[in-house]
């Protein structure tokens, strides 16, 4: 006699071999990204120009720099999980998934850290003079 439910037999059979945690995290992340990206577009459109002086001055405001740092974190997380979904669907071998997944991880962590460093450099520039 089988002592397992039908759920047990299908768990982990999706292309990512994980449960629903990633799915729910992506929904929360998407809503955060929606709010933050609309904030960025509206903020840039509200600036009188988008030249070097105006944008640098804008980023010295913590109410611009902090949401932009959050946007970077949420964006690169979204890129990581969005592209991972594509890799899981189209990379048909385990070695392919590992290789592309590793490259993706490198790209998002390096890109995210670099982007945050750039924002901080502008935001804190001249503050200690």
């Amino acid at each position: 006699m089988k002592m397992e439910t039908p759920l047990k037999q299908v768990r982990g059979l999706g292309s990512a071999h994980h449960g629903g945690g990633d799915w729910w995290a992506m929904r929360l992340n998407s809503v955060a990204l929606l709010l933050l990206s609309v904030w960025l577009v509206v903020s840039l459109l509200r600036l009188p120009t988008v030249n070097y002086d105006t944008v640098s001055e804008w980023l010295r405001d913590p109410f611009a720099a902090v949401p932009l740092l959050l946007l970077i974190a949420v964006t690169f997380w979204h890129i990581k999980h969005g592209l991972k979904e594509i890799i899981d669907d189209y990379a048909h071998t385990e070695s392919g998934k590992i290789l592309w997944g590793t490259l993706l991880t490198l790209f998002v962590y390096a890109g995210g850290a670099f982007a945050m460093f750039c924002v901080l450099k502008v935001a804190l520039r001249g503050g200690l003079a």
């Binding site: 690169f76 670099f114 924002v119």
Partner: peptide, 20 residues
């Protein structure tokens, strides 16, 4: 999604690096 991740991601990095 793929296009925004790669092209948009790189452009975001270029913009922020140029600003810094």
């Amino acid at each position: 999604g793929a296009g925004l991740s790669i092209v948009g991601g790189l452009l975001l990095l270029w913009w922020l690096w140029a600003l810094a």
